[in-house]
Amino acid sequence: MQTVVKINNLVKRYGDLVALDHFNLEIMEGEIFGLLGPNGSGKSTTIHCLLSLLEYDKGDIKVFGEEMKPDSYHLKKDIGIIMQNVAVFDRLTVEENIDYFCGLYIKDKKKKKELVQEAIDFVELNDFKKFYPKKLSGGLLRRLNIACGIAHKPKLIILDEPTVAVDPQSRNNILEGIKRLNKEGATIIYTTHYMEEVEQICTRIAIMDKGKSIAVGTKEELKSMVKTGETIQVDVPKLMENQLEQISKLPHTKKLSYENEVLHVQYTKGKHNLIRLLDYFREQDIAFGRVTSELPTLNDVFLEITGKELRDQ
């Protein structure tokens, strides 16, 4: 497998603010690589440096094994970008927009026409070809934005928070599309602050905070790095104070809460936590209803490493 992107000790300052602090990243061919971090952690800055849209203070960036510079047009031809904000011409139709951006890469008229049609098919905007962007709903607009970035069939596709403010159905549609692009051979870099998205599609993930990459790996690897284990949730109509106290003393119990007749117990890593809890209920003759068990989330990973929540910053 070939390295597609390699970022080495990248430092980027905005005045006094260090936006990227000796940031490292290596992305291999065929990956869907997720860059997960809260707002302001430096994801967009990373992407902008990677694309030579920003000058940086230190470090080096290689794409397809070559140094990336503002005039590396032979590298740029194989890159497609989709940014957080929709970047289209309001006064061009869906088809004309895709044609314009595709034409910045593809000179041959016939080939361009084919590629534009393929892109339209891909994002399923055939019925909206002649529409102006203002007439499209949020989800369709995002799909147009994506089509503009991928029409020229890039080998590396970079998406910077492409699903912000998108309804769940469109979001799923977009995520499935990204998976398909990856199947067709493109390497994907996907930045987001939604952990569910990276869990759903990414083959490897880097977690970012304050301009640093704090953990890299598959989601399983990341989850096994931390001490947090599963969280068990049980509907219990009635629990006494002393019973709660005893439950908290069971092995591996990390945190528990009892609210609205629902008991949440979070465990550190360890086996047989659920059996032990249910045994206790039986012993004490406690009636209980639905039981669910969740593995740790990337939020738990983030929380454990940084001491703060990934979301709601």
Binding site: D71, Y73, K77, I81, N85, D90, G149
Partner: peptide, 22 residues
């Protein structure tokens, strides 16, 4: 101004057509 919108411009700069040509 349409060509100079920040987001459109980013996309154009990232393309493989020389900025000077554009």
């Amino acid at each position: 101004a349409m060509f100079y919108q920040e987001d459109v411009r980013k996309r154009c700069i990232c393309s493989s057509m020389k900025l000077k040509d554009q």
